[in-house]
Design a protein around this nucleic acid. Structure first.
Length: 666
DNA sequence: TTCGACACATACAG
DNA sequence: CCTGTATGTGTCGA
């Protein structure tokens, strides 16, 4: 089965007037699919996409389609509309199989991360397309789709990226076995903020792909990759493969973004906001949150944690793998929410055996493993700015409060009061405020992956793991006090052990690197443009500073490693080698293909460079000046920086009048 | 072959 | 321009 997230740009806001305004269009290419307005969904269609406040007036899952046949066509399954241009957190799509009354499984399908898509219009929607194939679907039927979203955190700037589509091409590729693969653009799946999506490797002329007869009159198909090109000068792409275990899909993983298309140096504003955990292009995607323990309120309501994370800096795509250098720093921003969010309720850990210990708080940490979730642990080390002259530590467990999912998309106070309900301790420069995000900076892998760069041997892969722990209280032994309740693992990554020069023969398309000179990450604590405060912390509050994490350009003047002709577009070719078959190990074969489709090919607006944001030096430096884990405190009272981004309010300015349809055929 | 240590290069802030 | 800081990377030896 193939899932495709297909962003569409509508000339008219689907929220205006008839909300079913697009239904007819959808029906037009629905083929053997039954499409029903959400209100009409029946037992066959479960779409309780509201895991806590999620869809709201700003966005909605309007239609769901019930595949009635297993024909080979794509089946439009759902349309997710967004009417606002404001940023929002990713939407998570899951399949839900039901056995009796019980949900048997909930398979993550895809995450649509608006910012990553550069959606800046009121008339945007995402359509999920499923391709049902006899072989795959027989064993893993998908009965419905669950669409959830983590509530938006406050953002004050526009995350708009000037992504636009140009040219016409299909965004899918046909593989030998007949199944089409789509890649998620960088902004893809399970990843977070720093948007560097890599495009799907759909070349403009993907062989085997043709317009689907089922998807008529929607304009010319476009290649995802095109969406990230010219008008997106600094847009980073990351690509991700969603999930897939099937050989066919697994091969997708390799589908890379053309290096040429990656825009160096740009970090989406959204990614700059530490409160935002939207996956970003250019950073390795994260798999869905793996919940190990749920919680319960006193009245029995089950609470599920959702982890957010964003891998910052240091990573780039090489040979279709997320890659970094062991010696270079990367950073990892972590936060979590509780869904539904219960502001003041004491929580109890749900454990087998009946005992339900109180949860006094939560903490997050990071780790790494090799070869999957249960692989051997790989040590991570955290440096101080002194690097070799300073201590080398292991990333510690940082207590932080949950972010509040229920706050409005555009509201302030994403880190508000309720965060304090679980944590009285204060972090950050604003006493009383509870940190809701921990940023682990200057992290390095202790070891490189085996055989990296060598094709003759199997490439080893690491995964970063973000861990959420519940604090059961100091009355427990140190061993029992912290219970790991959820984890979220990154896409597989290659860690190179040697200097870049050693790999120069290989192409590098990244951007993740902050570039030479360490201009970017500078200090420890930062204020993101969105107003979140990141407080450097080495056990205690150490420092903070205002800054806009500027990642600068990908371009490395010294080595030129990251440079590429600005307009050079290299047709991406899916790599389907066995190596590429490596999959996420997630349940199966779902790929998604998010992209925003714009009509018109004119160059679009350019985003202000994030690097232009003012950087403010720390005011809270500790004596030692070190700052390791950073905590992001509530942003209450912090200035929201919106100004420079506010100009993009009117989507009409940027949107073509023609609706484009990206189609794919199998 | 891998990795630590040292050194150098570069960007940026003051 | 100079200096200090931070960090990417080249090199070498264990």
């Amino acid at each position: 089965m193939l899932l495709v997230l297909l962003p569409l740009a509508f000339t008219q806001n689907p929220f205006m007037g008839s909300q079913s305004g697009n239904l007819s269009d959808l029906s037009a290419y629905s083929g053997n699919t039954t499409i029903v307005p959400e209100a009409e969904s029946d037992s066959n269609l479960r779409h309780d996409y509201l895991h806590g406040p999620s869809l709201n007036q700003d966005m909605g899952l309007r239609y769901l389609a019930i595949p009635t046949t297993d024909d080979m066509r794509l089946v439009p399954l759902a349309l997710l509309f967004r009417r606002s241009t404001a940023p929002c957190l990713p939407f998570y799509f899951r399949t839900v199989s039901t056995v009796g009354e019980r949900q048997a499984q909930s398979l993550p399908l895809a995450v649509w991360e608006p910012e990553a898509e550069g959606i800046a219009t009121k008339s945007t929607c995402v359509m999920l397309l499923f391709r049902f194939t006899p072989d795959t679907d027989t064993n893993s039927p998908v009965y419905s789709v669950d669409c959830t979203t983590q509530q938006p955190l406050a953002l004050n700037y526009s995350p708009y990226t000037n992504i636009y589509h140009q040219g016409a091409s299909n965004g899918s590729t046909t593989y030998p076995n007949g199944s089409a693969s789509l890649y998620s653009p960088a902004t893809s799946l399970y990843s977070m903020p720093d948007i560097k999506p890599r495009l799907s490797s759909f070349s403009a002329s993907s062989p085997g792909m043709s317009r689907s007869p089922a998807l008529p009159h929607l304009g010319s198909p476009i290649a995802t990759r095109d969406l990230y090109t010219s008008a997106t000068p600094n847009y980073r792409r990351g690509s991700d493969l969603l999930l897939s275990r099937s050989p066919a899909l697994g091969s997708v993983r390799g589908a890379p973004l053309s290096p040429a298309e990656s825009r160096s140096g740009f970090t989406s504003p959204a990614s700059m906001d530490s409160t935002l955990h939207i996956s970003g292009e250019g950073s390795p995607p994260l798999r869905p949150t793996h919940v190990m323990h749920q919680f319960q309120t006193v009245d029995g309501q089950v609470i599920r944690p959702e982890i957010y994370g964003k891998i910052d800096k240091g990573f780039f795509m090489a040979d279709n793998d997320w890659t970094c250098y062991r010696r270079n720093y990367f950073a990892l921003q972590c936060s979590y929410t509780l869904l539904p969010n219960i502001p003041n309720g004491p929580l109890h850990l749900i454990q087998s055996g009946g005992h339900s210990p109180n949860i006094l708080g939560f903490a997050m940490s990071i780790s790494a493993v090799v070869d999957g979730q249960h692989g051997k642990v790989i040590e991570l080390v955290q440096h101080t700015p002194k690097r070799d002259k300073g201590p080398q530590l292991k990333p510690e467990r940082i207590p932080i409060a949950p972010k509040q999912p229920q706050l409005g998309l555009f509201g302030d106070g994403a880190l508000g009061n309720s965060s304090r309900s679980l944590f009285d301790q204060s972090f950050g420069p604003n006493p009383g405020q509870t940190a809701t995000e921990a940023t682990f900076e200057r992290i390095q892998f202790k070891n490189a992956t085996a055989n990296n760069g060598k094709r003759r041997a199997a490439q080893q892969y690491y995964h970063l793991v973000i861990e959420l722990f519940a604090d059961l209280g100091s009355h427990h032994s140190s061993h029992d006090r912290w219970v790991k309740v959820a984890t979220r693992m990154s896409a597989p990554m290659v860690v190179r052990g040697r200097s870049p020069g050693h790999y120069q023969s290989e192409r590098r398309e990244s951007n993740a690197s902050i570039g030479p000179g360490g201009s970017g990450a500078g200090g420890s604590g930062t204020f993101s443009p969105g107003g979140s405060l990141r407080v450097g912390n080495l056990g205690t509050v150490s420092s903070s500073m205002l800054t806009s994490p500027s990642y600068g350009s990908n371009y490395d003047p010294r080595s030129h490693h990251y440079s590429r002709p600005p307009n050079l577009r290299i047709p991406s070719e899916p790599t389907l080698s066995a190596e590429d078959s490596r999959s996420f190990g997630e349940p199966d074969g779902f790929l998604y293909y998010p992209s925003t489709i714009y009509e018109g090919h004119e160059p679009r607006y350019h985003l202000p460079r994030v690097s232009e944001e003012p950087r403010i030096k720390s005011e809270f430096s500790q004596d030692n000046g070190y700052s390791l884990p950073s905590l992001t405190g509530g942003n209450d009272g912090l200035p929201r920086h919106c100004g420079r981004w506010e100009g993009v309010q009117s989507s009409s300015t940027y949107f073509p009048t023609t609706t484009l349809q990206h189609e794919m055929s199998i």
